[in-house]
Design a protein around this nucleic acid. Structure first.
Lengths: 168, 168
DNA sequence: CTAAACTTTCAAAATTTTTTGAAAGTTTAG
DNA sequence: CTAAACTTTCAAAAAATTTTGAAAGTTTAG
């Protein structure tokens, strides 16, 4: 397989995975493109490479910076901005986990916390089932949250070594 | 807060979380509704409760069965089908993890595997960066895959006990 | 058999999400 | 200052996804 074709496949696959997990396909594709680019790229280059408009490229690059996955660079004597992706996979994973927790998990955790406090008659099957489900989901969510906390602070090698020590 | 209001909030929150993670909002809402229903519900009841059409309710319920989260039940002497959700949170988590791995992670893992085999000149920065990124992502993905494997086979209490034994 | 009671299908409509592109905004070289 | 170089914004258009509902299909009681 040619390098150019391989890059293309990676960009497609990353875009598809992203969109399946609720990440804008274009954002995932731009991220993929930057991940396989040794040098920082300009907005212009991103536009050409992925056939997207200036507006789209600009917004997507800013989103990626908002996610902490990409940073702006400047070249001496040049006016335009260059964009460079952090290539450290563990950093990427932590950053994504951190953002998604903040944006999507935390709000649900807050609501679940409130819902566990709803009072009612344990003799009422409607209440009992509601209460049981909410309580159980809340417990699981809190365990996930605690594990994410550890992961966010952890070094990659230590994290996986620890995991596989028990899980073989 | 009233039970009815609390149910509504849960259904909304679950639907929102689902849609943020690439799960059809209605599917997540139907699942939420069944999770807080002590008795199995008919298609009719799901339609009324969530204000959705018959076609939508039917397709969504079948999808939920496809995900292994809901099962059909029949009442003696009755012709219509009743739907009941497994309320065991750990089962739900495992089932979702299992399906998403099969549908979304495995295909990407396959592609990454192929892409790690692409050959090129290590002196070429384009190739070197591509190769490094793909190799790293592949490694991470494999570690996630292995961990999921363990989780899928594990008992809940054992799993979390093991996790928290190392992580603190 | 047959008609009532249900379930399934899927093309078209509605809705939501994403993208475009041109105008407005900003920065800086000269 | 001012005009060129570049970035940002956002209303409108396009695309993707989801939903509807009525027709077709299936099952079973009588």
């Amino acid at each position: 397989m040619e390098l150019a074709e391989a890059k293309q496949k990676f960009i497609e696959a990353w875009g598809k995975l992203g969109s399946e997990w609720g990440i804008n396909r274009t954002m995932a594709q731009v991220h993929a493109l930057l991940l396989v680019s040794p040098e920082p790229l300009t907005t212009e280059e991103v536009m050409e490479n992925l056939n997207i408009s200036r507006g789209n490229a600009n917004m997507t690059l800013r989103d990626l910076m908002g996610w902490g996955l990409v940073e702006k660079q400047h070249k001496a004597g040049e006016r335009k901005e260059y964009f460079f992706a952090d290539k450290d996979t563990w950093n990427i994973a932590r950053q994504v986990a951190k953002e998604r927790r903040k944006r999507e998990l935390d709000p649900v955790l807050k609501i679940l916390g409130e819902l566990t406090k709803v009072e009612g008659d344990q003799k009422d099957p409607e209440f009992k089932t509601f209460n049981q489900s909410i309580t159980d989901i809340n417990k699981l969510a809190k365990n996930v949250d605690k594990t994410l906390d550890t992961m966010l602070k952890a070094e990659e090698s230590w994290f996986w070594a620890s995991i596989f020590k028990i899980f073989r």
